Simulated assay, not measured.
Amino acid sequence: MPGVLLSAGAARFVSIVLHPFVVFAALALVAAWRIDPASLLHTVVGIAAAIAVVSVFIWQRRRSGHWQTVDASRPQERPLLYLLALAVAGGYWLWMGGRGSATSGGVLAAVAMLCAAGLANRWIKLSLHMASLAFAAVSLLVLVPWMGAAAVAMLPVLGAARVRMGRHTRGEVLGGTVLGAVSALLPRLIG
């Protein structure tokens, strides 16, 4: 983050392009392509449905005035988001075949990441943007190393964007990064 200077417009652009929806959708598609190509269409449908459900919820919360921003920027806005994200992730896991899915470990690791972020929310509003990109970066280093390296290179840019936009402090950005990276290692540490 130090040394990365972004205009407000550039920070917003980076935050949109590297939104958790985009990052997790890309990771799911790459994982399906590398691990179980036959599940690619199934993955597309599952990810599209998951993103649609969460997007409608976010739109409704923002439009009704319950949320200040689409990012659920206030800590008190996040518990419902975490609950919905966990329910949707669980539904996606079942859609993909549960334990029988080739990507089951990764989905469960993402669920663990959301649980940890939700529990920590009482004390710190960890950046889910950073957590998702760090999770994807570590996962992609194994699946497609050059993509993982590109994701790692984008971490400081995204961190600077989140701080520049005033959505997170440096500590929240760093905490989200560590949470995402450690969570992505879970399947390798456990299995």
Rank of each mutant, 00 (worst) to 15 (best):
V17F: 14
G46W: 11
R188W: 15
L108K: 07
V88R: 04
F135M: 10
A112W: 06
F24M: 15
M147S: 07
L40Y: 12
L133Y: 01
L179S: 07
V56L: 15
A50G: 15
H19I: 08
T177I: 04
A72E: 05
R63Y: 04
G90T: 01
Q60V: 15
G91Q: 07
V138K: 06
P187G: 03
W95G: 03
S101Y: 05
F135A: 07
A52M: 12
V142T: 13
A151Y: 10
A28Q: 06
R122A: 15
R167V: 03
S183Y: 02
L158K: 07
A153Y: 11
W123T: 04
L94W: 14
A72W: 11
G159I: 08
L94P: 00
A161R: 09
Q68V: 15
A150S: 13
W67P: 02
A50D: 01
H42C: 07
L40M: 13
A149S: 06
G46Q: 05
V107C: 00
L155W: 00
V22K: 01
I58H: 00
P145S: 09
L80C: 02
A8M: 12
A10S: 13
A48T: 12
I58R: 11
A32K: 09
G9L: 05
A8L: 14
R167A: 14
A136H: 10
R62V: 13
D36V: 11
G191E: 00
V23K: 10
P20F: 05
Q60R: 15
A150C: 09
G91L: 11
M1D: 05
L94V: 14
S132P: 05
H19Q: 02
L185V: 09
V4A: 03
E172I: 06
A149W: 14
S73N: 01
V178P: 02
A150Q: 09
V44R: 13
H168C: 04
A8N: 06
P156A: 05
L84C: 07
W67T: 04
I16G: 10
I190H: 07
A11H: 04
S127E: 05
L41D: 11
L18V: 00
L140W: 12
A49I: 14
L114P: 12
A31Q: 11
H66Y: 06
H19V: 05
I124G: 00
A181D: 07
S127D: 00
R170V: 14
G175K: 01
L80Y: 12
G100K: 06
R78S: 03
I51F: 05
V173D: 08
Q76I: 10
A48R: 07
A117C: 06
V4D: 03
I124C: 13
